[in-house]
Design a protein around this nucleic acid. Sequence first.
DNA 1: CTATGAAAATGACCGTGGTCAATTTAGTCT
DNA 2: AGACTAAATTGACCACGGTCATTTTCATAG
Lengths: 195, 195
Amino acid sequence: MTNPMTKPIQKRALATRDKLLTAAKYLISKESFEALRVEDVVRAAGVAKGTFFAHFKDKDALMEQIIGARMADLIAETADAQTPKDIREMVERLLPLIHFMTSERYVFDVIIRHSGAAAISDIGPIATQFDEQIALFARWAREAPYRPDIAPELVGEGISAFFIQAIALNFCALNSRQALESRLESYLDAWLCPK
Amino acid sequence: MTNPMTKPIQKRALATRDKLLTAAKYLISKESFEALRVEDVVRAAGVAKGTFFAHFKDKDALMEQIIGARMADLIAETADAQTPKDIREMVERLLPLIHFMTSERYVFDVIIRHSGAAAISDIGPIATQFDEQIALFARWAREAPYRPDIAPELVGEGISAFFIQAIALNFCALNSRQALESRLESYLDAWLCPK
DNA sequence: CTATGAAAATGACCGTGGTCAATTTAGTCT
DNA sequence: AGACTAAATTGACCACGGTCATTTTCATAG
């Protein structure tokens, strides 16, 4: 063995895991997150059902990987863009992320369920992305600067809280996308620019 | 028929519904919300499985009724008490509600999932309780008064958002109850008393 | 009282997530 | 190469939420 400290994982296993992820992503793109069935995934991947659960604790864990990865992309893009110069622009920056998080009720539920890490030893990709998100918001707050009276980290947590709240209320049928944006804008205005 | 506008619901049906609710509450008190099984409920209630689903759209709908009712009690108690005179006292008032909402991960998930009404025509008990909660917070804000620069309703929505955020982060293993309270306190301080 | 139609209740059945003892395969030692 | 061990895979099986055609019960009319 080249490295005695490495726990032995055969490349066959990595390939299988990859087949499962690829099959799942394909099926999701064809249908939706909500409609994904484990049996369909294993059939498309050409493996037995038990194999799925040898690679993912449960269906939710697969979802967390895929949704977390997509959030990571969106947040990275958002972070690459210039720091928003006002609140309207800040909301604009968040639109891609909002679009994904509201694309399906199911997606939002999975995200919320994993937003607080389940256990310290087991911080999943979605919880990680929330940390990233808060850090990004904190950076925005530091550069503007909004709310110099409190720590940028705290400002970031507040933005995150209002971000979630705005999206959650959006799933009420009478609230449209437009309502979401303007609501988020007034939340952030009240949070970031108290008179 | 005494009242031609009343859709006929036999009292037998109301009794059955009551048996189901009573059985469910009993089983929950013996075990937990998470451990509740529909089959156990119908066995305890002495009815067939199909009957359950004639009375509740799905298991979630039953949970919403029971959890919503308990929230209503807690919020009513909270509303009866005097308006908190500072933020520390405000957090103190919220402790019973926090205690229930953090009693089980499953309970919090159900609450979040129903906090934004699913459809305007179908506002469930939990969504109703959130409205009540926000209205109560708005009353507190109006009486103090906190944040005279913005509408009390908006202040209430903010308190609600931070309330949720504090609880969600609490499910991270390294954050204890004490951490929850002090975190909520600093959130509310930053929200209600900007310098 | 009996007939009738609608409300309520029934339970066999199904879909889907998840388990696990048994089997196959990959890497290693002699 | 053959033997040996542990990782990886398999698929029959189970648990549990949810469905629906059929049956039972109730209320009312004649």
